[in-house]
């Protein structure tokens, strides 16, 4: 296992890129490529990362970089890897797609590559909405969050659907390695990228990357907010290796989801009722991940019947 101290000095993603101050995506990219090293070829579909990392004639990547369309990350890295194999080069093809390019638009391509168990690394930079195009809702947007397509009005406030469980979808392909990462947990982050680097087959790294303008928060809190997310159960750190799930970081006592929500402007409008609903969702997830810890206190405030409140509302809105 390598530690922060053992990481190389050199930046393979150079300074001068045009990401917003405090960008979680830039942080994740820089450190992922630090661990992956020079023998890497990068593919980025339409996303912030392609805009701030490469603006003609400049580029921040010091490794080969390729970009085409939004929906084909899985297919492109497959092709890149096939070419390297044909040429006898020992290079890893890595795709850095956003949550829009993975949860929604790129899902079929990613699923194809996972099904074929291509020898590539797929990294999803999950900032929970289409941030590059101006904050539209994606399948990764959590319940209650404001986006420009889930605005806060008098009747409906924010996103009414819960975050899609991408982890389960990806892991269901029975791939060698799936892991969730957070920039706020550096050792866990480095260990997982390093582990993925040394495994053969389709590896999926799911990174939680705060977005300052999209989440409407203080740029200095990028790392802090990922820590709060893990402490409250909104984000869980685990890995699935050959079908075997392992929790890699166990937070202490569960913190109320409210602390996490109030750090961000996108949640600040949420009513107590909505927060309760989200808390129940988090509790369910928490109990699933940290079974042995037992139900935390915050979860016992709401009676268990309310678990179903959301599905009923969903039916009301969308028919049976």
């Amino acid at each position: 296992m390598i530690t922060i101290k053992e990481l190389p000095d050199e930046n393979l993603f150079t300074a001068g890129h045009t990401a917003c101050p405090g960008c979680g995506v830039a942080m994740s990219i820089r450190n992922a490529i630090r661990v992956l090293g020079k023998d890497t070829s990068v593919y980025v579909p339409a996303s912030c990362a392609v805009v701030f990392g490469t603006t003609f004639p400049y580029g921040a990547w010091k490794v080969p970089f390729f970009h085409t369309a939004f929906e084909n990350t899985g297919a492109c890295i497959t092709g890149m890897q096939a070419a390297f194999e044909k040429k006898g080069k020992k290079v890893t093809a890595v795709g850095f797609a956003g949550d829009g390019g993975t949860y929604d638009i790129g899902l079929q391509s990613m699923s194809g590559a996972a099904e074929r168990n291509e020898d590539v690394i797929y990294i999803c930079l999950d900032n929970e909405a289409y941030m590059n195009t101006g904050i539209q809702r994606s399948g990764g947007t959590p319940f209650g969050a404001w986006t420009t397509t889930t605005p806060v009005g008098t009747k409906v406030q924010g996103n009414r659907r819960f975050k899609k469980n991408l982890g389960e979808i990806v892991a269901a392909h029975e791939i060698p390695y799936y892991a969730t990462l957070s920039i706020g947990h550096p050792l866990d982050f480095i260990r997982k990228v390093e582990k993925a680097k040394n495994i053969k087959g389709f590896r999926f790294l799911h990174m939680f990357t705060p977005c300052i303008p999209g989440w409407k928060m203080d740029p200095a809190k990028t790392v802090e907010v990922t820590k709060r997310a893990v402490e409250s159960g909104m984000w869980t750190l685990y890995e699935v290796e050959n079908g075997e799930k392992k929790i890699t970081f166990k937070p202490g006592k569960m913190k109320s989801v409210r602390d996490y929500l109030m750090m961000q402007g996108r949640f600040r409008h949420m009513s107590d009722e909505d927060i309760k609903k989200l808390q129940m969702w988090v509790c369910k997830k928490w109990n699933l991940h940290y079974k042995e810890k037992g139900a935390p206190e915050v979860c016992e405030i709401v009676p268990p019947e309310e678990h179903h409140a959301v599905t009923e509302e969903h039916r009301e809105m969308h028919g049976p």
Partner: peptide, 17 residues
Amino acid sequence: GLIGPGSFIENKVSGWA
């Protein structure tokens, strides 16, 4: 100045701060 891979170092961003 520099162009291509790694050339973003040409772009000084200190004015943003």
